[in-house]
Structures are given as structure tokens and as C-alpha cells.
Design a protein around this nucleic acid. Structure first.
Length: 281
DNA sequence: AAGTCAATAT
DNA sequence: CATATTGACT
């Protein structure tokens, strides 16, 4: 009941709920261990969710579990003369290739939309997305492509050519907030908060990764591109490849209940039912 | 250190 | 082909 102007900095803060509407750390260290999920959070601010009393261990070294790295070839010769050998392998080792699913991209777009163009930088986006295993570089790379995509769209204004620039299938699957397409790049006095994402309760997601691509020579050929806006799902879970990196839960729980909108522009010809995880198929 | 961009590699 | 990685510059 104190609405005095003497606001403390705490009240001025964006309030943690605002900062991470997506996926809080709902998983306790205990569960994490149980599910074999190594909470390899690079910089997540989830360290101080609330002021909880931690009588001992100021640094909180408690969550030291086994780090089971999913290394393609863990047959390392163990020749690390660099001094630090068992520090944080998760940082030095090569992670499997990240697969940008439409859902993941959706989160990406949402994050950018919420943060605003100004603060939408790789690090921030990465933190906002709270996807386990996602690195800053993953985001940076994706962001770079995404920007090119946006730029491309601005230049083209329904010339009848359609203009599918090949690799943009992914981007096309997610609605682009209008102000993304604004041309005002020199002007920086426009800040539109713009919020769109409903209060979807996201549990924390994990990045789907692939070991390596079999790379079938398919779907290629036409460089002329066919602006029909008719694309097939690039990733149809075969069964062997496309390995989801340690999804702890024995599935069977629609927990997340992805209500994400999909199939927006597919008026005629239903297509694609993308599932992030192989739901028992 | 972190971000952007272009080019190149896997 | 989709990402990753690297280098140069900021």
C-alpha cells in the first residue's frame, strides 16, 4: 500500500516475471539430476529467483552432478595440457548441430519482439528464450540470417515474383511482427514495446540437435524457385537420426501443450504437423 | 567483451 | 542446404 514516489530500485526493476515470461526454472536441481539433465545454463539469471536462504555454500556448488556429455566421439585422448581439464567441458566441447524448428524460431521471434529491436541482441535473446543448450552463437547466426530475411522482405513489395529466397522457409513459418519490417533504421527514437505473446505457460525447452546430417541430395534442383508458397516440412522425423538431446521426461506428457499457432497461411491444402518431439510415433 | 557483417567451412 | 565458424571491424 505504499505508492509513494520513493520507489526503491526493486520496484523499478522490470520485475522478474516480466523478464522471463518464458520458462522459468521450474525444475529443481533434484529433478534435473534425476532426469540427467545437466543444467548447463551459461548465464541464466535464474540464479537468484528469490531470496531464499542458503545457509551454506555461498557459491552454491551443490548442483554438481555428473556431466554426461553427449559427445559424438568421446574417445578423446585426454591430452589437455592446458591446465584446466575438468572445469566446464560443456563450454569447450563441440555441440551437435542445432535444428531450428519452427517452434524454436517462434520463440526466437517472440523474444525479439518483446525485447524490441534495440535490445534484441544475441545474448539477450538467448537469455530470454531460455532454451537449454542454446548458445549465443546459435542465436547470433540465426539472427544474422533473420535480419537478411527481413531486409529482403522490405525490398520486395508484391512484385508478383513472389520472391522466395530459398532458405527462408523457416522464417516464413512464423508471423513477423509488423514493426520488424519498418524501414526506420536510422531513427532510433521509436520504441514500440509491442507485446503479443499470450501467457502461454512454457516449460523449459530444449534444443533439438542432430548428430550429423545424412544430407540427402533431394529437394534441390530448381534454382528458379517456385513462389507457390507450398513447402513441405523439411524435417520429417525418420526414426533414427534427429536425436533429441536428453529429453528427461519419459514423454507421454503434453505438459507444454504447445498452443503455438501454426499453419497460419495455409488456407488451402493442409500441411505439416510439426512436432518438436517424437510423440510416441 | 560483445555485436555486426561477409565469407567460408562443414 | 542449413548451420557453424571465422575474421575484420566496431
Amino acid at each position: 500500500m505504499r505508492e509513494e514516489d520513493s520507489k526503491t530500485w526493486e520496484e523499478e526493476l522490470p520485475s522478474l516475471n516480466e523478464l522471463m515470461p518464458l520458462s522459468q526454472t521450474l525444475i529443481t536441481p533434484h529433478l534435473a539430476i534425476a532426469f540427467d539433465i545437466t543444467t548447463t545454463t551459461p548465464d541464466n539469471f535464474q540464479r537468484h529467483l528469490h531470496h531464499r536462504q542458503l545457509p551454506t555454500t555461498p557459491s552454491n556448488p551443490t548442483i554438481h552432478t555428473q556431466h554426461q556429455q553427449q559427445q559424438p566421439s568421446s574417445a578423446d585422448s585426454g591430452d589437455f595440457g592446458s591446465g584446466n581439464g575438468a572445469d566446464e567441458p560443456a563450454r569447450t566441447l563441440k555441440r551437435p548441430r542445432l535444428v531450428w524448428t519452427p517452434q524454436l524460431h517462434k520463440r526466437f521471434v517472440d523474444a525479439v519482439a518483446h525485447l524490441g529491436i534495440k535490445s534484441a541482441v544475441p545474448k539477450t535473446i538467448m537469455q530470454f528464450m531460455s532454451v537449454d543448450g542454446l548458445t549465443r552463437e546459435n542465436v547470433a547466426s540465426h539472427l544474422q540470417k533473420y535480419r537478411l530475411y527481413l531486409k529482403r522482405m522490405q525490398g520486395l513489395s508484391s512484385g508478383g515474383g513472389g520472391g522466395d529466397a530459398a532458405t527462408d522457409h523457416l522464417f516464413a513459418s512464423s508471423p513477423v511482427p509488423p514493426h520488424f519490417l519498418q524501414q526506420g533504421r536510422t531513427n532510433s527514437d521509436h520504441f514500440l514495446p509491442f507485446v503479443q505473446v499470450p501467457a502461454i505457460q512454457h516449460h523449459h525447452q530444449m534444443a533439438a540437435v542432430q548428430h550429423h546430417q545424412p544430407q540427402f541430395h533431394r529437394q534441390a534442383g530448381h534454382l528458379g524457385s517456385r513462389p507457390n508458397g507450398h513447402y513441405e516440412h523439411p524435417f520429417l522425423s525418420r526414426q533414427s537420426q534427429q536425436q533429441v538431446h536428453r529429453i528427461g521426461a519419459p514423454m507421454h506428457s503434453p505438459v507444454a501443450g504447445y498452443v503455438e499457432d501454426m499453419g497460419s497461411e495455409n488456407a488451402s491444402g493442409g500441411r505439416k504437423i510439426l512436432t518438436l518431439f517424437p510423440t510416441g510415433d
